[in-house]
Design a protein around this nucleic acid. Structure first.
Lengths: 251, 251
DNA sequence: ATCGTCTTATTGTCATACCATTCGCAATAG
DNA sequence: CTATTGCGAATGGTATGACAATAAGACGAT
């Protein structure tokens, strides 16, 4: 992590794999805007013929592109590979996969989340519409009802945070927050069961955050959110030492 | 964007593709810790036989897993698919791809970046070691020299920001910052040429940020960074209206 | 006009074969 | 005895050709 001139952007270009070369070529076409959203690539046979490779090779390339969310593949006549914008959901799950399987630990992810979710609040406060606030309020109400019914879940909490992020009216921010909640949910699901009372304070804080947003009081929102997330952080710390604990428990 | 109970976590499970089923199966094995870091999967032929599918199908599954950074594939005797932790670099490029090809616009990404890079500063200030500061200083010096020589590039600026993020000593944060810089670099490369003088103020601000970090003055660091990034944001706004402009310019 | 049905283009999968790479081991040379 | 060389086997990478499954559109029968 101490490289000076930031490699990591410049990847090893040596790939003695035909399919990888094809992936790069098509990726370049997409990045370079020569292939656009919705465009259809030639059929597998066609591509293979043009590039002088077999269909298998082309197919492997397409699999990779598909996995990366760059193309969508449809079967049947008029089917084929279509350039697609990775949906927000696709990005989210991709990110979640990456995060949950990476060497990142839960505390690290949680900390990053704190940075982000607190940092976004000024934008949220500035841009939240009346509809946003109304929906947040409804959400809190709903969650509190669920809480009384003993049906409050971490998913609800996550939904709140995502909805709050949406108030920043910035897709990038919302996507990131959404992604953060994926892997964490997994690691926290049982913690929730272990500490069901947590929800009381949690939803109360949610309510207060909404109030602060409604009052356009960024400082107060940040303050509450900081406390709120710090508690989550503590919970993470006491539950697991990693999203995927590096030295896993014996099976 | 207004789903209440956060689907997106629950994906369509219907995939009538053999290879996808295999992917899911292996992914589950990895998540469930039945396959661990460094473990070697059976050979393609072997896997195919066990699962009752052809080698091609297995290979396509492996391509997907490989693209997702879950396995690494080595050729030769004793080769095969090995379970691997996605490297930070791999995550970064995956993220970069996702970001740069998503419907996210450059202003959005920039804004998210502002949130994040400013928000992380307290952590940076708190945790930066003497070595960190020394290296940052060296970096700034180097960049200023490059600037005088007319060789200052956006890549250098990006490297600085990444190095600064590394001072938070949190891999998640560093990875995110690194990822943010990938797509942005692309969209800014020519802007840099258009406004070469920009570097003077940029490096000066970098220097001041380092000074603030050294002085453990989070407030000051945030202040400078905010200004610094706001200028970048303006540059982005005037250069392109999107990382990948949705309605692209005619070719 | 509407509803099946056929045609056709395209992906999904298979079986087999051959090449390239790499590792381990044994034969051989010193 | 040691070091080098060379061979063989395991494994991924690619090619070929074939057939099945699917979906869109054309066409024809009612």
């Amino acid at each position: 992590m101490s490289e000076r001139s930031d490699p990591g952007l410049y990847q090893a270009v040596s790939t003695n794999r035909m399919s990888e070369a094809i992936v790069e070529q098509i990726r370049a076409l997409i990045r370079g805007d020569r292939l656009r959203l919705g465009d259809r690539l030639p059929s597998e046979r066609d591509l293979g013929e043009r590039m002088g490779v077999s269909r298998v090779t082309v197919r492997e390339a397409l699999r990779v592109l598909e996995a990366g969310g760059l193309v969508e593949i449809r079967v049947g006549a008029k089917g084929g590979a279509f350039v697609t914008a990775p949906s927000s959901a696709k990005i989210g799950t991709g990110l979640a996969d990456l995060l949950s399987l990476s060497p990142l630990t839960a505390p690290e992810v949680t900390e990053a989340r704190q940075v982000f979710e607190v940092g976004m609040l000024p934008l949220v406060v500035e841009r939240a519409t009346d509809e946003d606030v109304a929906e947040l309020r409804a959400m809190v109400k709903e969650h509190q009802a669920a809480l009384r019914a003993g049906e409050y879940t971490m998913a609800m909490s996550a939904a709140f945070h995502v909805r709050l992020a949406a108030c920043a009216h910035n897709t990038a921010i919302e996507t990131l927050v959404r992604s953060f909640h994926g892997p964490l949910l997994m690691s926290l699901r049982e913690a929730q069961v272990a500490a069901p009372l947590m929800g009381h304070r949690g939803t109360a804080e949610h309510r207060d955050i909404v109030a602060a947003v409604a009052a356009r009081d960024a400082g107060r929102a940040e303050e509450i959110m900081t406390t709120h997330l710090r508690r989550t952080a503590r919970r993470v710390a006491t539950t697991a030492d990693g999203v995927r604990s590096p030295a896993a428990a014996p099976r």
